[in-house]
């Protein structure tokens, strides 16, 4: 059974339809990516899941029950905008959030210390939040969202403000949480992180779902039309290939895209081999970034055409 289910959820702000009939479900123990360009309706969708906003229509079910105050207890939420008491000390703040989620002061304190250690933030307990850097505040806020061991963890742009070392640390922690059976809903613009972490994704544009499924399945669905080439010899032939776009090119390497659906890779290889000495000819899987751009651009084109 899905841990989270959205059924035909819609939300309007005045005349703007921010979310329009969105449906998807999240399976337990998986990392689920909620993707989309700016203003697509991701944050509104998350705010409805966390019960900050109420949908105008449709249903949101968490663990088989409509979201509400009881379900909020089972959610951990890291919002995109940081929200901590600026003058409060770190430990006091974490205990406060733990208590709001139903932990006793002692349980909250123990969990906070454990998490501070895990995120290499020992010694921060007595620091005021305003004394911390953006990245450090981000870690504190992350701890506030996982302190009560939620079943569903919602992370909206969790890597904002983190340096590469802390990005890696947070990635490890997210994977550990997944290994413990937690479900993670993850919203980001950084596609390389989606590729690295997510099992399933849903792509939203203009408030509607335009693509959904497991990452593997989606990538397999898209045509493998990109070729990585390494060669020696004069490369003039690259300019004379019908139905092929040169994406990037250097003296002995190039990345090509087959625009003509009738063109087969073996035909292209034969054509290239007739003029170049081929050292490498690799058919690449499309990246999520490419799929994202292609899908959104196609929708924009369709919108213009309509």
């Amino acid at each position: 059974m899905a841990i989270l289910e959205l059924l035909e959820v819609s939300k309007r702000f005045g005349r703007n339809r921010a979310v329009d009939g969105v449906s998807f479900s999240v399976e337990p123990g998986r990392i689920f990516g909620l993707l989309g360009p700016n203003g697509a309706g991701k944050t509104t969708t998350i705010r409805m899941i966390t019960y900050i906003l109420l949908p105008d229509s449709g249903r949101i079910m968490l663990m088989g029950r409509p979201v509400g105050p009881e379900q909020q207890q089972r959610i951990g939420y890291l919002p995109e905008e940081r929200g901590l008491y600026r003058r409060m000390r770190v430990l006091e703040q974490l205990v406060y959030f733990g208590r709001l989620k139903g932990l006793s002061a002692r349980q909250a304190q123990e969990a906070a210390r454990r998490w501070l250690q895990r995120l290499q933030a020992m010694g921060w307990e007595e620091k005021r939040v305003e004394e911390l850097s953006k990245g450090m505040q981000q870690k504190v806020q992350f701890i506030a969202s996982v302190l009560h061991e939620p079943d569903l963890l919602i992370l909206d742009e969790p890597y904002t403000g983190l340096d590469p070392l802390n990005t890696e640390l947070l990635t490890q922690v997210i994977l550990e949480l997944k290994a413990q059976g937690k479900t993670i809903l993850f919203s980001t613009h950084r596609m390389e992180q989606v590729e690295q972490l997510c099992d399933d994704i849903v792509l939203i544009n203009r408030g509607q779902v335009v693509l959904a499924g497991s990452v593997r399945e989606i990538k397999a669905r898209y045509r493998k039309d990109t070729i990585r080439l390494e060669f020696s010899g004069p490369d003039g032939v690259l300019d004379r290939l019908p139905g092929v776009q040169v994406i990037s090119r250097s003296r002995h390497a190039a990345e090509l895209r087959m625009l003509d659906p009738a063109l087969r890779p073996q035909d292209l290889l034969l054509r290239l081999a007739s003029e170049l000495e081929i050292q490498r000819f690799e058919i690449l899987e499309p990246s999520l970034q490419q799929i994202f751009i292609e899908t959104v651009s196609r929708q924009i084109e369709q919108g213009r055409g309509a």
Partner: peptide, 15 residues
């Protein structure tokens, strides 16, 4: 000033 914080508090199980 506490607009963002309010959002976080509203996501907690507090009426």
């Amino acid at each position: 000033q506490t607009r963002d914080f309010l959002e976080l508090i509203l996501s907690q199980p507090v009426p």
